[in-house]
Design a protein around this nucleic acid. Structure first.
Length: 470
DNA sequence: TAGCTCGTTGGACAA
DNA sequence: TTTGTCCAACGAGCT
């Protein structure tokens, strides 16, 4: 170990355990300066949305507390990253900077330049893999080109499976002789000014310890039924790990380790199912890495001419969708769950996305943007990939004739109507048999809205639109 | 290379 | 009420 000081630049790896950048800095240097820099301009159109900022605020608070307990502290800065690092370096005399890689196209470019510039100044600058089981350039086909279909990607991942190893959590961290100034967390103004996020706190506990508890709880029992239960929005069958994974409060390696059966691929159906979801996350990041325009442009080029409705024409319908006022119970329940809790059940995400793109013929980018702002787990890889998949223009996409019917989906996956009743209390008194159906002509139910489109007619319109493109 | 198989998550309709 | 078939064609991926 050299008698030197290293900056550990935290980004979306807000944990102390299995943090390769932190681990490496600590092993190779005597003193460590943990730093977080709020620099949303660097992320272009994809700086964290309002829900993500709420989470980030609380996650940073949790990280700062854990660092305090280890004799360290979290230095918070804002503004241009290179300048902030330079300031901190001057005060602390640090001669090395470590971080874990991110894969958003804009950030890859920023980080590449930064690394080159730091090295030019004679500093150590190293990035590590803290976010993925496999780097996007590792899991490729035999001819080195990236996968475009999930199943072969998943098969390859299983073939190359090895017992995950994680790095240890430091018990103590020695700081620099002189600490740099830090902003107070509140100065980043990450929390919304209106009390919009009130419901989030009831549902979520950001931070590494909460993430670990959730993982341990889930793997202890619920994972056994995950394969089937994960499709039921009326039950708590999913892991709810997504925001923790997004902010790096838990790593996919830690999840894999928790599922691991003596170094072998998990054999239990539920465990394998959860691992497959982790694989989807990896697949999404791989796609984005190899196709940097994915957040804006359809992967399948014919879709760039798809006859979406005009913006002026769909504005009212888009608002109704965002507010959960479409008059389609399953759709409204999902959109209200999203608004209230910053999260939506995966199956319902597909239903509302299919409804927006197919029944309303509104471009998938509008949905992706709304999700980006309102989901606490908004993740550029997953969000982009999911929306393109539903719209039928992405990798391995749903065929054009696959239009989800929100009534049938409700009857199948929310059979008692509990989910709809919870989020659309106006409908609470409707009999379970009718609860997923839009109001019929002349029927009234509190101030629940009439359907903004006819499901059958709009389905046919969508099929015709998709036909026209072929 | 050429040929074969397959593609996360569905719905409508006929029998 | 349940089950089977069709709704496209194409290109990815594998052997």
């Amino acid at each position: 170990m050299s008698h030197s000081t290293a900056i550990v630049w935290f980004r979306r790896d807000l944990r102390l355990a299995d943090n390769p950048a932190l681990d490496r800095a600590r092993r190779e240097h005597e003193r460590v300066v943990p730093v977080f820099i709020w620099d949303p301009d660097a992320e272009g159109d994809w700086a964290p949305g309002a829900a993500g900022r709420w989470w980030l605020h609380h996650s940073l608070a949790a990280l700062a507390e854990r660092l305090d307990q280890r004799g360290s502290r979290l230095i918070i800065a804002a503004g241009d990253t290179a300048e902030a690092l330079e300031r901190i370096r001057k005060v602390t005399g640090a001669d090395a900077v470590y971080w874990n890689r991110l894969y958003e196209p804009a950030l890859i470019e920023r980080d590449r330049k930064l690394k080159a510039s730091l090295r030019e100044q004679g500093l150590v600058a190293e990035s590590c893999n803290g976010a993925l089981l496999f780097e996007p350039w590792q899991l490729v086909k035999d001819d080195k080109s990236p996968y475009l279909v999930f199943t072969p990607f998943w098969k390859q991942m299983q073939k190359r499976w090895q017992a995950p190893s994680v790095c240890p959590e430091p018990r103590q961290l020695d700081g620099p002789a002189r600490w740099p100034a830090s902003l107070a967390l509140e100065e980043l103004k990450l929390l919304p000014e209106i009390d919009w996020a009130d419901g989030f706190g009831e549902r979520w506990s950001p931070g590494e310890l909460a993430a670990r508890r959730r993982l341990e709880h889930f793997v202890d029992d619920p994972v056994t039924d995950y394969d089937a239960a994960r499709d039921r929005p009326d039950r708590a069958g999913t892991s709810r790990l997504s925001p923790h994974l997004h902010f790096g409060e838990v790593s996919p390696r830690q999840v894999a380790l928790a599922l691991d059966e003596a170094g072998e691929l998990p054999r239990g159906k539920g465990k394998l199912s959860l691992l497959r979801e982790i694989a989807w996350r990896e697949f999404s990041w791989s796609l984005l890495f190899h196709h940097p325009h994915l957040p804006d442009k359809a992967l399948k080029t014919p879709f760039q001419d798809f006859p979406w409705r005009d913006r002026a024409d769909y504005q009212d319908d888009l608002k109704a969708w965002q507010r959960g006022q479409t008059g389609i119970p399953m759709v409204d329940a999902g959109m209200r769950e999203l608004w209230t809790t910053g999260w939506m059940h995966n199956r319902v995400r597909m239903v509302v996305a299919s409804f927006l793109t197919k029944n309303l013929l509104i471009p998938w980018q509008e949905g992706a943007k709304w999700f980006w702002d309102t989901l606490v787990d908004a993740d550029l890889g997953n969000n982009t990939q999911g929306w393109q998949w539903t719209a039928g223009c992405g990798a391995d996409a749903a065929p054009y004739f696959r239009v989800f019917n929100p009534v049938l989906q409700g009857e199948k996956f929310d059979p008692q109507g509990d989910y709809v009743r919870r989020w659309c209390p106006e409908l609470a008194k409707r009999p379970a048999k009718r609860i997923h159906h839009p109001l019929a002509d002349g029927e009234r139910c509190g101030d629940y809205p009439r359907p903004i489109v006819d499901l059958k007619g709009s389905r046919e319109r969508a099929l015709a639109a998709y036909q026209s493109m072929r």
